[in-house]
C-alpha cells in the first residue's frame, strides 16, 4: 500500500507540473495579452509599455519558470483588477466554493447511494422507477431554471430562505440543493448498475449459498464491489464542483471560484486566470489521486499492480 501511495503521489506531482506548463502556455496562445490588457482604445506604444512592464516580451519558458518559482514560494502575483494578492483572493473565493461543493456532494451521495442500492437490489420495482424518474428530471432540467424555481418557492412565496448572497448558513441551502441534484443522477445510476452486476456475480451466489445474512451480502459484499467506480466518479464530481459552477454562483450571487474565473477571464486578469487554472488542475489531480488511493484501500488487486 505504501509503495503504491508513493508511486501515485510522484505521478500526481509530475502530472501537475506538466498541466501547469500547458495551461500557462495556452494563455499566450489565445492572443497577445498586452494588447488585451491595454484595451481597444490603446495605441501600439501603450501595449509595448505593458509588455515590458509585465515581462511579456521574454520567452515563454523564462516567464513560466519565473512564475513557477513564485508559485513555489506561495506568491501567485497580484491581481491586475482587484489590486490584491491573488493568493488572498483565491483563498477567500475557494473557501466559499469548497463549502458549497462539499455540502452539494454530501447531499448527492446521501440520496444517490441508498436509492441506487435499493434500485439495484429490486430492479423494475416501484422505488427503481421513481428513482429513474428523479434522475431523468435532474439530468434534463437546467440548473439555473431549477434554481429559479427554488427561489420562487422558498424566497418569494414562503419567505424562509434568502434568495442570494452568503451571509448565513441559510443562504447555502438552495445552492447546495441545486448542485447536489445536478450530480446525484450519475452517482445513483452508477450505484444501481454496480449493484446489479455485483449481485449477479458468482461470489454473491457463494455468499448466499453459505447462508450469510442479506444485510452482509448487500452492504459488505455487493456494495463494497460496487463502490469502486462510485468513489472515482464522486471525486471527479467534487473536483468539478471546486472549479465552481458559474451558473449556480451567478444565479445566487455567490462570490466563489466560478464567478472569479468568469470575471478575471473577461477582464484579462492574467495572474488570477493562471492561478485559477493551476488550482483547478491541482484539484483534479489531487482528487483523482485520493480516489485511486481509496480504491486501492478497498481493492487489493489494485495495490499489487
Amino acid at each position: 500500500m505504501l509503495s503504491y501511495a508513493v508511486r501515485r503521489i510522484a505521478m500526481a506531482c509530475l502530472l501537475t507540473l506538466f498541466v501547469s506548463f500547458i495551461a500557462y502556455s495556452l494563455i499566450f496562445a489565445a492572443g497577445d495579452p498586452a494588447a488585451a490588457l491595454a484595451g481597444n482604445a490603446s495605441t501600439a506604444a501603450d501595449a509595448d509599455r505593458l509588455r515590458q512592464l509585465y515581462g511579456f516580451d521574454r520567452p515563454i519558458i523564462v516567464q513560466y519558470l519565473h512564475w513557477l518559482s513564485g508559485v513555489l514560494r506561495g506568491d501567485l502575483g497580484t491581481s491586475l483588477y482587484f489590486d490584491q494578492p491573488v493568493a488572498t483572493l483565491l483563498l477567500e473565493r475557494f473557501t466559499t466554493t469548497a463549502r458549497l461543493g462539499f455540502f452539494g456532494l454530501v447531499l448527492a451521495l446521501v440520496i444517490a447511494v441508498p436509492l441506487g442500492v435499493v434500485a439495484g437490489r429490486w430492479p423494475n420495482s416501484m422505488v427503481d422507477r421513481l428513482a429513474l424518474l428523479l434522475a431523468v428530471v435532474g439530468q434534463a432540467m437546467p440548473s439555473f431554471w431549477f434554481a429559479l424555481l427554488l427561489m420562487i418557492l422558498f424566497s418569494v412565496k414562503l419567505s424562509i430562505l434568502p434568495a442570494s448572497g452568503t451571509a448565513s448558513w441559510q443562504s447555502f441551502v438552495m445552492p447546495t440543493i441545486v448542485l447536489g441534484y445536478f450530480s446525484m443522477p450519475a452517482i445513483m445510476r452508477l450505484t444501481r448498475s454496480g449493484m446489479i452486476s455485483a449481485l449477479e456475480s458468482d461470489y454473491i451466489r457463494t455468499a448466499r449459498a453459505m447462508g450469510l445474512s442479506e444485510a452482509r451480502v448487500l452492504f459488505d459484499y455487493a456494495l463494497r464491489n460496487a463502490a469502486l467506480p462510485i468513489i472515482s466518479l464522486s471525486s471527479a464530481q467534487f473536483g468539478f464542483m471546486l472549479a465552481g459552477s458559474v451558473v449556480v454562483e451567478s444565479v445566487f450571487a455567490i462570490h466563489g471560484a466560478g464567478s472569479l474565473a468568469w470575471e478575471s477571464i473577461s477582464r484579462a486578469d492574467l495572474p488570477t486566470v493562471q492561478a485559477l487554472v493551476l488550482c483547478f488542475s491541482l484539484f483534479y489531480v489531487f482528487f483523482t489521486m485520493v480516489a485511486d488511493m481509496l480504491n486501492a484501500m478497498l481493492d487489493p488487486r489494485m495495490r499489487s499492480k
Binding site: D202, Y203, T206, A207, R208, M210, G211, Y221, L298
Partner: peptide
C-alpha cells in the same frame, strides 16, 4: 440451513470468492 447443515461447492473457483476480502475474512464470515 444453508452453509450450516447443507452446503455447496461451485464449479468456478476463479470467481466464486469475493475479490475484496481476505480468505480468512470470508471463511470467518461463514
Amino acid at each position: 440451513l444453508r452453509g450450516d447443515r447443507l452446503s455447496m461447492i461451485f464449479q468456478e473457483p476463479m470467481t466464486a470468492l469475493n475479490p475484496l476480502h481476505t480468505v480468512g475474512r470470508q471463511l470467518s464470515d461463514v
